[in-house]
């Protein structure tokens, strides 16, 4: 497993000219929305903040198709679907990034169900080969605790990776006043052959807009 990851990462870093854009944004509306949804739900129906992040990624990818697709060796080709690869840490070490197929078409509840299913099967080595190759963009999140930010390595032949640091509580200016908010830092890793900073910046803005309106996800 470690050797396969090493080979893929070396290939990616040696062949893809990465550049990175970071932006810290208010995650409090999304966190409050999830808490509100979960208050009346049994555990089997609860939503994780990670599902909101995946949904926002899928919608931003649909909004910004120049970051959603593959480099076929001759140049970038937009994908017809939005299949968000989800980086999943395996117990005992290693990572896999199977895709949530058609993620832009799923409700938040269905996104959460798809994540539960992928994580369960990733942990028991029952992922399908198509899921391992169908990703059109990848989301990697540090989870509930840890570093503020993460700049990931693009999963070739994709051209963009969304890295999310752990949410942290910070003083934050909202409507002209300083408030206690939980914020998250998003870092886009982008293939400079396929895109420039303007397109990546548009993706980040789209993600932030979707995250700020969690009731529409």
């Amino acid at each position: 497993m470690r050797q396969a990851i090493a080979a893929a990462m070396v290939r990616s870093k040696q062949t893809i000219p990465h550049f990175y854009l970071s932006h810290t944004m208010d995650a409090q509306p999304a966190i409050d929305h999830v808490a509100c949804l979960n208050a009346d739900r049994p555990p089997s129906k609860r939503i994780l903040l990670g599902a909101v992040f995946l949904r926002a990624t899928a919608l931003a990818a649909r909004d910004c198709p120049d970051l959603n697709g593959h480099d076929n060796g001759e140049g970038f080709v937009r994908a017809d679907a939005v299949n968000v690869g989800l980086a999943i840490a395996l117990r005992g070490g290693g990572l896999v990034a199977p895709a949530v197929i058609g993620a832009d078409e799923l409700s938040l509840a269905k996104t959460m169900a798809a994540m539960r299913d992928l994580v369960a099967r990733a942990r028991t080595s029952r992922l399908r080969s198509r899921e391992m190759t169908a990703g059109t963009i990848t989301l990697s999140s540090l989870g509930e605790s840890g570093a503020d930010a993460m700049a990931g390595v693009i999963f070739a032949p994709q051209v963009a990776m969304v890295g999310l640091g752990a949410p942290h509580t910070r003083p934050w200016v909202v409507d002209g006043t300083v408030q206690r908010r939980t914020v998250v830092t998003m870092t886009m890793s982008v293939d400079h052959r396929a895109n420039d900073g303007r397109k990546a910046s548009q993706f980040i803005a789209a993600f932030e807009t979707h995250l700020s309106r969690p009731d529409t996800l």
Partner: peptide, 11 residues
Amino acid sequence: LDSMDILSLVT
């Protein structure tokens, strides 16, 4: 354990 594991345990 991560947040998905905790939710699985609670479930």
